[in-house]
Nucleic acid binder design. Structure first.
Lengths: 227, 227
DNA sequence: CGATCGCTTGATTCCGATCAACAGGAGTGG
DNA sequence: CCACTCCTGTTGATCGGAATCAAGCGATCG
């Protein structure tokens, strides 16, 4: 991990002092340049709910879940973060949700103070942070639609389609997360997720190479919300 | 509705040219100064899903629902907007959800281009927009927890507590929305909402002055997530 | 006044949760 | 190596909470 002073000199490198203003991705694309990196093994906590938010993170490899657990053990996963994606930056100074590694992961880290200092001087950085928050907001809204309206089967189909799009862009996925994580993301139980996937497979709506390796049929790959 | 030129002169007024930088609320607090206003009757659409996002709105009186309807008629309300609250500003140029008046409402309106122009020149404006988006994100995440984890009764209690806090700050609420809106917000049916409220009343967990006027008992007013 | 709307309540159905058992690896240690 | 356990995922049986279907009530309105 670097000091703020070192990060500041990096900032000038990134900003290209005296040249054009920072372009989109100037911060997020350059996390590698100004931060350190850490490794987390499967199920390790990256940060906890209510902990101070001192860092900004970017997935280098592996995958991360953003979640919160209620007193009685019920858990909701609000998002999965895949390679190249950013997480952990809060407007306040405390994390509202926890972040945990789904698989063994390498995570890039930048001090929050570095980003804040950057943002204080450069409006484009703030614009990027804002745009990033707005994209997160959008996917949360989509997810609320899923949680509020869709049946179990529909949720699983929507999930598989989304993961296929995000991970491979095609119609074949290697899921990085366990069934329990899928269940907690979709607001279902592990049994219901497993059953839904089995039924989709026996419908030939999807193909199951292994339990984690799934091939989407054309209906699922290109259809609308309903399967 | 004013022109951009007029709005720009307002900007200088608000910014206090040559003085301190814009304070928090410089944009949102001054919507009255730089925009127009419109009236909407109950159930009127303020803007639709997929429509161009040309304006930023602020509730003067009444209340608004932010929602999306699926092809088959299933509807999810993602948020309610109460007096003094802002809605309708998107990062992209298209609305992702519709906005409709819940009750007869007066809505203040500012052209998006005005805000964008302001933001282009003033970093604090961007910071405010970002902070606003971040607050929205936070409440969406809380709502996902509700939709993914809570039982019907728990959802209704959480909803009543939230509305009481937002509207009166105390333990008594006059709900501005119909049961159907509550149901679509909580991911339940109207019958389940009605039944839950009736049961809470017969438990003496809440008091029902009228169907919309609700008094929260101390357990509900100050308790945690579970009722 | 009938008609519509918002809300409530009752009866029944059904989807997903729960409880329970088991199969296939992966890792561990003798 | 095998026996062992642990972990993940699947499947079956049953239960229960919320959805659905249906009816009725009071208020508001044309």
């Amino acid at each position: 991990m670097q000091t703020v002073a070192q990060a500041n000199s990096s900032r000038q490198l990134v900003a290209g002092r005296g040249r054009r203003p920072l372009r989109v991705d100037a911060v997020f694309g350059s996390v590698e340049l100004i931060g350190g990196h850490m490794s987390f093994s499967r199920n390790a906590e990256i940060y906890g709910d209510e902990e101070p938010a001192d860092y900004l993170y970017k997935v280098a490899s592996g995958a991360v879940r953003i979640c919160k657990v209620l007193d009685d053990g019920r858990r909701q996963i609000t998002a999965f973060c895949l390679p190249d994606e950013i997480f952990g930056f809060e407007v306040g100074d405390v994390h509202r949700f926890a972040a945990e590694a789904i698989a063994d992961s390498r995570i890039l880290v930048v001090k929050r103070s570095t980003v804040v200092a950057l943002a204080a001087r450069n409006g484009d950085v703030v614009r990027q942070l804002w745009a990033h928050t707005a994209r997160e907001l959008q996917s949360m809204q989509e997810h609320m639609l899923l949680l509020g309206c869709l049946s179990a089967r529909e949720r699983v189909v929507a999930f598989l389609r989304m993961m296929a799009k995000r991970i491979s862009g095609g119609n074949e996925v290697e899921l990085p997360m366990a069934r329990q994580d899928i269940a907690d993301y979709l607001g279902l139980t592990i049994e219901t997720v497993s059953r839904s996937i089995s039924q989709l497979a026996s419908d030939a709506t999807i193909g199951l190479r292994t339990s984690r390796h799934i091939v989407l049929g054309n209906r699922v790959a290109f259809g609308q919300l309903n399967a």
